[in-house]
Amino acid sequence: NITNLCPFDEVFNATRFASVYAWNRKRISNCVADYSVLYNLAPFFTFKCYGVSPTKLNDLCFTNVYADSFVIRGDEVRQIAPGQTGNIADYNYKLPDDFTGCVIAWNSNKLDSKVSGNYNYLYRLFRKSNLKPFERDISTEIYQAGNKPCNGVAGFNCYFPLRSYSFRPTYGVGHQPYRVVVLSFELLHAPATVCGPKKST
């Protein structure tokens, strides 16, 4: 009989979030998941669920729940959905087409922007091929755009693959930082360890 609440607040209220290319994953298990708490945590810009209804979450049980978190800019949030393409979905964080879970995003301009520009958040701009779903690539190998090998040196047709967002508070919403948490629900042929409040007794 599990009584402890799932530590969603640790994920959502973390002081620092990860850069999207090096997104963070927390496995959540053996706890009571009260998803209604999430609705009250922040004024969400996005709370979209796929393959599951957000209002039914509190009635369900899962084997595992994974919470992935990272920062992107406002106009990239739409890429965090099944079947999307674009720089983020292709080279940084890719959801599977049959994704079961929820994408939660909110504006973090007050936390993640600086007047002089916050350069701490990076994204991958160049990659030889698209990522597979939930693949994480943290390599910093020089990207070869031409025929000549780069031998690890940046220059003509040889690019450092990561680029930094420079978040400034005066930017338009599309270029402001957004914190994203992706909850993916895993149903294996194994005992369910993460249940809503109704199912945990």
Rank of each mutant, 00 (worst) to 15 (best):
Ser113Ile: 05
Lys148Gly: 10
Asn120Ser: 14
Glu141Leu: 07
Arg73Cys: 05
Thr15Leu: 07
Asn40Leu: 07
Thr3Asn: 08
Pro191Met: 06
Ala154Ser: 13
Tyr93Ser: 01
Glu186Leu: 00
Asp90Gln: 09
Leu95Trp: 00
Thr201Tyr: 13
Phe134Leu: 07
Lys148Thr: 14
Asn151Cys: 08
Cys61Arg: 07
Pro82Trp: 00
Ala22Thr: 06
Gln84Trp: 05
Leu188His: 12
Val20Gly: 04
Leu5Lys: 14
Asn24His: 12
Thr15Gln: 10
Val173Met: 13
Leu122Ala: 15
Ala190Tyr: 11
Arg168Met: 12
Asp90Glu: 08
Tyr121Ile: 05
Asn147Ile: 11
Phe167Thr: 05
Phe62Arg: 06
Leu183Glu: 00
Thr193Pro: 10
Lys148Asp: 12
Thr63Lys: 14
Asn118Gln: 12
Val153Thr: 15
Ala192Tyr: 14
Ser108Phe: 02
Ala145Glu: 11
Tyr159His: 14
Thr170Gln: 13
Asn147Gln: 13
Cys31Leu: 04
Arg27Met: 09
Asn30Val: 02
Ala33Trp: 15
Phe62Ile: 11
Lys132Leu: 11
Leu187Trp: 10
Val153Asn: 14
Asp98Thr: 09
Leu188Arg: 14
Tyr93Arg: 01
Lys56Tyr: 06
Arg127Asn: 05
Asn147Tyr: 10
Ser19Trp: 01
Pro43Lys: 11
Leu95Lys: 01
Ile138Trp: 04
Asn24Tyr: 03
Phe17Pro: 04
Ala105Glu: 02
Asn40Ala: 11
Ala18Gln: 08
Cys158Arg: 03
Thr55Ile: 10
Ile80Ser: 02
Val77Cys: 02
Glu186Lys: 09
Gly51Met: 01
Asn30Met: 03
Tyr143Ala: 06
Asp137Arg: 01
Thr63Gln: 10
Val181Tyr: 03
Phe47Arg: 07
Pro161Gly: 02
Arg127Leu: 04
Asn64Tyr: 13
Leu187Phe: 11
Ser29Glu: 10
Pro169Lys: 09
Thr15Val: 09
Asn120Gln: 14
Ile88Ser: 02
Arg27Cys: 08
Gly196Met: 10
Pro197Met: 15
His189Cys: 08
Leu125Ala: 15
Val32Asp: 07
Ala145Asp: 11
Phe70Leu: 01
Ser108Ile: 04
Ile138Val: 14
Pro161Asp: 02
Ile88Gln: 03
Ala42Pro: 14
Ser29Asp: 09
His189Thr: 13
Tyr178Pro: 01
Tyr171Met: 15
Ala105Trp: 13
Tyr91Met: 07
Ala33Leu: 14
Leu5Ser: 10
Asn87Ala: 14
Phe134Val: 04
Pro54Tyr: 11
Phe167Asn: 05
Gly86Gln: 03
Tyr21Trp: 06
Pro161Lys: 01
Asp75Pro: 03
Gly74Arg: 06
Gly117Val: 06
Ala14Tyr: 02
Phe44Asn: 15
Gly74Asn: 03
Leu162Met: 06
Ala89Trp: 02
Arg127Glu: 05
Val32Leu: 09
Lys114Pro: 10
Ile28Thr: 01
Phe12Gly: 02
Leu187Arg: 13
Lys128Glu: 13
Asn120Lys: 14
Ala192Met: 11
Arg124Asn: 04
Glu141Lys: 11
Thr170Met: 10
Tyr39Gln: 14
Ser19Gly: 04
Arg16Asp: 13
Cys6Asn: 03
Val103Thr: 01
Asp98Tyr: 06
Asn64Ser: 12
Asp112Ser: 02
Leu38Phe: 11
Val194Leu: 10
Gly83Thr: 05
Asp112Gly: 02
Leu131Phe: 02
Leu60Cys: 09
Arg78Leu: 07
Leu38Ser: 03
Ile142Ser: 06
Gln144Arg: 08
Gln84Arg: 08
Tyr121Gln: 06
Phe126Thr: 11
Asn120Met: 10
Leu57Ser: 05
Tyr93Asn: 02
Asn118Glu: 14
Asp97Cys: 06
Gln79His: 05
Ser113Gly: 12
Gly172Phe: 11
Pro133Glu: 06
Leu111Arg: 09
Leu125Lys: 15
Arg16Met: 09
